[in-house]
């Protein structure tokens, strides 16, 4: 290759190289806060300062001493799990019916089922606090469960509808013609095919629930404090790396869950329902 040829080659590729540089900066921007929080969580100093000079696990020990953070994490996990299961119980049958419906009513129904995604959480929190107090549930695990289920249903419905539509009618028709009853078709064909969709819908719901501050804020009490509520109040009173430690723990839990899912059903549905 002559010098001019390689120069012209570079010239043609220049826009892409510039774009690549931009993308790298973008991901640095996206990941920087997370990386620094993790670094801080392993720091040894009382105050948050950079660069981190010595590393230790003292802030993780602090988590064990100051119970509210870990307790609320456990509470949040239970709440998220329970609301995802409830949302699946409500959402999966609805999603299956919607995905195959030719009825004009289906549009309206799916608008309602997906609407909780588009309502400011803080408003939903206030409204539900009124309502649930009025019917005597007040500030309780049940109230939180109801509130989180309302928000989880759309995630399950959206994912399952997308996956179920994606697999089309043919597999079920093939099963029917091979003599499978409706129930057998559902058990042996439909459910295995949409299983990953249900799973990732529920996972989405769990992740959203774990991080849902705006909704949980209104139902906070000594017994019903979710992790984000406790983190926020901690952050407003102290500014030490314990918060970084608990955040890191939560992230590790999510990552492990994700890895498990990747091993079992695969992640391909995580990115598709956008």
């Amino acid at each position: 290759m002559t010098a001019t040829a390689s120069w012209r080659r570079l010239e043609r590729r220049l826009p892409i190289l510039l774009l690549l540089a931009f993308v790298l900066i973008f991901f640095a921007f996206l990941l920087a806060p997370i990386v620094f929080v993790v670094l801080v969580s392993f720091g040894d100093s009382e105050i948050i300062a950079f660069p981190v000079t010595s590393y230790s696990l003292r802030w993780y020990h602090r988590l064990l001493e100051y119970r509210p953070l870990l307790d609320s994490l456990w509470f949040s996990l239970k709440l998220a799990g329970a609301s995802a299961v409830l949302a699946a119980l409500f959402g999966v049958p609805a999603a299956l019916a919607l995905a195959r419906s030719r009825s004009g009513l289906a549009d309206l129904v799916s608008t309602v089922l997906l609407a909780p995604l588009s309502i400011p959480m803080i408003l939903l929190g206030i409204a539900l606090l009124y309502k649930l107090s009025a019917i005597g549930l007040g500030i309780s695990f049940t109230s939180l469960l109801i509130a989180h289920t309302v928000v989880s249903i759309p995630y399950v419905v959206r994912t399952v509808v997308a996956v179920y539509r994606g697999i089309g009618r043919n597999y079920e028709e093939a099963a029917a013609i091979l003599g499978a009853s409706r129930r057998q078709t559902f058990t042996y064909v439909t459910l295995p095919l949409i299983g990953s969709g249900i799973f990732s819908g529920m996972l989405f719901a769990v992740l959203i629930s774990l991080d849902n501050l705006s909704l949980s804020l209104f139902f906070g009490s000594a017994q019903t404090n979710t992790l984000p509520v406790v983190m926020l109040s901690y952050l407003q009173n102290q500014f030490d790396p314990a918060i970084a430690a608990i955040g890191t723990v939560q992230m590790i839990i999510a990552l492990v869950a994700l890895l498990l899912i990747e091993r079992t059903v695969g992640l391909k549905f995580m990115s598709s329902p956008s």
């Binding site: 597999y171 028709e173 093939a174 029917a176 013609i177 009853s181 064909v189 295995p192 095919l193």
Partner: peptide
């Protein structure tokens, strides 16, 4: 009769082999 009871064999356009 529903398809289950017709005792037919069918090959679909894209085969519809159960992927799992």
């Amino acid at each position: 009769d529903p398809p289950q009871r017709r005792k037919l064999g069918m090959v679909f356009q894209n085969y519809s082999l159960f992927p799992h």
